[in-house]
Amino acid sequence: MRPAPTTPQPDSRLPRVRLAIALIVVCLGLIGLAVWAAQRHWREASLLGITQGVVEDLSKDLPKAYGDGLVLESVRAEPGRVLMVVRSTRRSLDTASRDLRSLEIARTIEQQVMLGYCDNPSVKQVLSTGVVFVRRYLDLQDRLFFEVGLTAEDCRRRNLRTPS
């Protein structure tokens, strides 16, 4: 008598191999995520240190008279920007609103003044990370006259126009 034909049995090791491969893939993914998070944290900590150094340099001797009737009161780091607060000691928003042309001229001049920060290597380094430098001009009652900003692109355009 011949033995009855047997149907091939699936290899019982196959599910274990698949599970092992899946675990390896998951572990590699977690390791990659941890490396990415550590690098990101290091870059952010480094940027924060550089930004804080710039803020400390700009904050020396504040408040400081700045221009005609203006006082640079504070400099602080905020997410994505360095904010400099300049206050007018003479003009209120009400009086400035009556002379909009003068206010626009002041804004244009202050935008040009901001370009001077492009010569500061530490500021340029912070700007290169996408941080924006902002000057906020306020009256005595904390009302906003205007804000001017400085980006890395502003410095790049300035350097293209300025011969070396």
Results as ranks from 00 to 15, higher is better:
105 I>S: 08
42 W>A: 15
83 L>W: 03
49 G>N: 12
85 V>P: 04
80 G>K: 00
76 R>T: 07
32 G>E: 09
41 H>D: 14
55 V>L: 05
61 D>G: 04
45 A>D: 03
35 V>A: 04
61 D>E: 13
73 E>D: 15
47 L>Y: 08
106 A>C: 01
61 D>Q: 10
74 S>L: 05
48 L>D: 08
102 S>R: 13
54 V>H: 01
95 T>W: 05
60 K>R: 06
57 D>A: 14
28 L>Y: 03
92 S>R: 06
109 I>F: 12
53 G>Y: 07
57 D>F: 10
110 E>H: 14
28 L>E: 13
97 S>D: 12
86 V>Q: 00
93 L>D: 04
57 D>M: 07
88 S>E: 02
91 R>I: 08
71 V>R: 09
94 D>W: 11
59 S>N: 12
75 V>Q: 04
42 W>F: 11
111 Q>M: 10
114 M>F: 01
109 I>V: 14
34 A>L: 10
58 L>M: 13
23 L>R: 05
58 L>C: 05
66 Y>N: 08
69 G>L: 03
41 H>A: 14
31 I>F: 13
106 A>P: 00
71 V>Q: 06
62 L>V: 08
100 L>G: 09
41 H>N: 14
37 A>T: 13
112 Q>I: 05
56 E>L: 12
30 L>M: 11
94 D>P: 02
36 W>V: 09
96 A>H: 03
75 V>T: 14
33 L>F: 11
76 R>E: 04
111 Q>W: 02
69 G>N: 05
30 L>Q: 07
84 M>V: 12
76 R>I: 04
37 A>H: 12
47 L>D: 08
96 A>F: 03
80 G>S: 05
114 M>K: 01
110 E>P: 01
95 T>M: 09
73 E>R: 13
111 Q>S: 14
95 T>F: 01
29 G>S: 10
63 P>F: 06
59 S>C: 14
75 V>C: 01
30 L>K: 02
22 A>H: 11
68 D>N: 09
31 I>A: 12
48 L>Q: 11
90 R>E: 01
110 E>A: 14
36 W>S: 08
113 V>Y: 06
114 M>W: 00
21 I>M: 14
71 V>Y: 01
35 V>K: 06
94 D>N: 10
43 R>W: 12
90 R>Q: 07
39 Q>L: 10
105 I>F: 06
39 Q>M: 09
93 L>K: 10
45 A>Q: 04
45 A>P: 00
72 L>G: 00
107 R>K: 08
102 S>D: 07
96 A>E: 02
80 G>H: 01
77 A>F: 03
90 R>N: 05
40 R>Q: 15
67 G>T: 08
57 D>N: 14
37 A>F: 11
40 R>W: 15
40 R>D: 15
78 E>H: 02
46 S>V: 06
34 A>H: 10
